[in-house]
């Protein structure tokens, strides 16, 4: 298997942080989507996705991130991203993700702006 990936979730009282590692494609994206939907079902509307250990994100992975933005939008929630590389941030801005989700350099800033 070329793509080794991992997802970690940390929950606090008010928000949850999802940390992904590896190549964010359809496979990791589906796992990420499951975790996010589970958190949303459990009442979390303030989420941070930390992509610091995510080496590459393809357009299928991005489409899954858009689905998470939409799911949170329906509940008037907020999604912030952190730990993006310069190329990832550029791609997110190109695809209008930055209009509907926050992009911050680190977890601390992403949480502070939820």
């Amino acid at each position: 298997m070329l793509n080794k990936f991992d997802i970690q979730v940390r929950e606090s009282k008010e928000h949850a942080i999802i940390e992904t590692a590896g190549y964010l494609n359809d496979a990791l994206g589906e796992k990420l989507s499951e975790k996010a939907q589970e958190l949303i079902q459990n009442g979390y509307t303030l989420l941070v996705i930390n992509l610091e250990q995510t080496t590459l994100i393809n357009s299928i992975g991005i489409s899954i991130l858009i689905e998470i933005i939409e799911a949170l939008d329906e509940r008037e929630g907020t999604l912030n991203f952190c730990g993006l590389s310069a190329t990832q941030e550029r791609t997110f801005r190109m695809m209008a993700i930055a209009k509907y989700a926050g992009i911050f350099p680190d977890e601390e800033a992403a949480i502070a702006n939820l």
Partner: peptide, 20 residues
Amino acid sequence: PTLHADLRKRGRGLQIIRAL
């Protein structure tokens, strides 16, 4: 369709390639 018209889920691969 997405909630926001500019948040297209698919068909952005070539746009990414051209931009990069």
